[in-house]
Design a binder for these strands. Structure first.
Lengths: 211, 211
DNA sequence: GTCTATACGCTGATAGAC
DNA sequence: GTCTATCAGCGTATAGAC
């Protein structure tokens, strides 16, 4: 996957150099604490060129956002092409996200850790973007096919990927010391089978075991 | 609970007026898009006074942060005084958070939706603050007392409260249309009993039913 | 303690040379 | 297409009157 990477592309095209530098800075300091001059310095591309290519700082952020969402969407396509149950597809996604959290933390950080609406005001919510709709659609199918036991796909999605995103954030913040891959089995098991022991609604549990 | 509230305190002390206005603005636009002049206008307190009281915009944000964390900490104290299992305590917290999300969305938004490290650089991570440690401690006890079935309290906490925080965010963003209280039963059930139907590790499920 | 007016620096943006 | 020099505006912070 041709992710933006400062170390890989050496005589990179100029717009790639800009985006790569911007990603690094945005993740490190946050959008608002990065100036055009900072991007200019790190990318070694003149301010004029930055304006020519992207029309300003917001334009750089938007291009970066679109580019990374596109990469993420391609990943979702691959996952959707798998011959697998919806839960297996979800788990594959979780595994890949954990791997990227270690290998490309800047990308994961920008997509999942940033408050995009603060610097992309016109942008629709990230959860309405294509790859996130694909995620939701997996959950919907899972519910329809009685694989996932929930009444509402949005809520089910929030529970599943809320957990995953939180784990990723804690890992990025250094609260979790070990790579998340290491906890993959426990996490997916917990998500799909629950953490609880004391069960109030006994009847419902039986539904879970049935079929 | 004496939360900051513009409508309640009418001839408020000056510092309360500043904090209340700041909270409103920070939540609406985000910290970086609010200027001292904006706070001055809304609070109707002069810039000089704002500097005297809080030493600047960051100072206002820090005071707000401390104040709200303190309120949250008092809530955790109350919950910890309940004669209840750890799961019941967690559920009580979840219920209260859902209620506040409807009644005091600004507070919830500032505490859970903001990226504090972007404007409070020296501040420790929010998950290391007192009330969050109290949350973690509930989980730890739950695991020790074999109430919660997990090996690692941080991961268990991430799964439980990651879900909850995500739901709150989706509610604040308007993606979830109904008040979360309405989904409380389904959510807590899903969190504690899992979403999955196909269970790979049959043995572990039996452990869940036991005792 | 509270306020107003002002200074200064930084940032985004442009114009024009190469 | 790429760059440099420069400008205008905003936002923080202060000094000093009341």
């Amino acid at each position: 996957m041709p992710y933006l990477d400062r170390t890989v592309c050496s005589p990179e095209p100029i717009d790639c150099r800009i985006l790569t530098a911007a990603l690094e800075l945005f993740v490190e300091r946050g959008f608002h604490k990065v100036s055009i001059h900072d991007i200019q310095k790190l990318s070694d591309v003149s301010i004029g060129s930055i304006y020519k290519h992207f029309g300003g700082k917001e334009g750089v952020a938007k291009a970066l956002y679109d580019h990374l969402l596109n990469e993420f969407d391609e990943l979702m396509d691959k996952i959707n092409q798998l011959e697998a149950s919806q839960i297996e597809k979800s788990n594959e996604l979780i595994k890949r996200l954990f791997t990227y959290t270690e290998s490309r933390r800047d990308i994961i950080s920008f997509v999942f850790h940033a408050k995009h609406n603060e610097f992309l005001p016109d942008e629709s919510l990230i959860c309405d973007e294509k790859p996130f709709l694909a995620m939701r659609s997996i959950i919907e199918k899972g519910i329809k096919e009685k694989e996932i036991n929930a009444s509402n796909p949005i809520i089910a999605g929030a529970i599943i990927f809320g957990s995953v995103i939180r784990l990723i954030q804690l890992r990025l913040d250094g609260v979790i010391k070990e790579p998340l891959e290491q906890h993959y089995d426990e996490i997916t098991f917990s998500i799909w089978n629950g953490l609880g022991k004391k069960i109030k609604n006994e009847p419902k549990l039986k539904v879970i075991n049935q079929s």
